[in-house]
Amino acid sequence: MRRLIATVFRKEMKDHLRDRRSVLSALAGPLIGPLVFAVMFTLMASWFREGKPLEVPVVGREHAPSLMAFLQRHGATLTEPPADYEALIQAGKLDVVLIIPPDYGKDFSSGHTASVQMVVDNSRNQARSTVRRLQNLLGGYSGMLASQRLWARGVSPELASPVRVDEVDLATPERMAANVLNMIPLFLVFAAFMGGMNVAIDAMAGERERGSLEPLLINPVQRGAVVVGKWLTTVVLACVAVGVCMAAFLVVVHRVPLQDLGVKARFDSVAVLGMIAAVVPLTFFASAGQMLVSTYARSFKEAQTYLQLLLLLPMMPGMVLALSPVQSQPWMFTIPVFSQQLLVGEVMRGQPVGVLPFLLGALGCAVAAALCLALTTRLLAEERIIFGRS
Results as ranks from 00 to 15, higher is better:
M319Q: 13
Q304R: 12
S328Q: 13
M275R: 12
V326W: 00
V344G: 05
H254W: 08
M319Y: 14
M332L: 12
A277S: 09
L261E: 13
Q304N: 13
S269I: 12
I335C: 00
A271K: 15
P314N: 00
Q290L: 12
Q327C: 00
L313Y: 09
T305C: 05
F338E: 11
M316A: 13
T305G: 07
P257I: 01
M316S: 11
D260N: 09
Y306H: 02
S294A: 15
K301C: 04
F333K: 06
P336E: 08
T283W: 02
V256F: 10
L321K: 03
R298T: 14
G262T: 11
K301A: 11
P317F: 07
L292P: 03
E302F: 01
R298A: 10
V251L: 13
A286T: 08
P281D: 07
L321D: 05
V252R: 02
V252W: 04
P352I: 00
M275E: 07
A265N: 09
M316T: 09
Q340G: 12
D260I: 03
A278G: 09
L342D: 04
Q329E: 11
G354L: 06
A277I: 07
Y306W: 13
E302H: 11
S328P: 15
V252T: 10
S299G: 08
K264M: 10
A277C: 02
L258P: 08
Q308K: 14
E302A: 14
L312C: 08
R266C: 04
Q308G: 13
S269R: 10
L311D: 04
Y306L: 12
L309Y: 13
L273T: 02
T295D: 09
S324E: 11
A265I: 14
V270G: 06
D268G: 04
I335Y: 10
Q304S: 09
D260V: 08
C245D: 14
Q329A: 12
L282C: 02
V337G: 03
E302W: 11
P257C: 00
L250P: 04
M319F: 15
Q304P: 10
P314Q: 07
M291Q: 12
L342W: 04
G354E: 03
T295N: 00
G243K: 14
G289K: 02
L311Q: 14
V280L: 15
P325G: 11
A297P: 06
M319D: 07
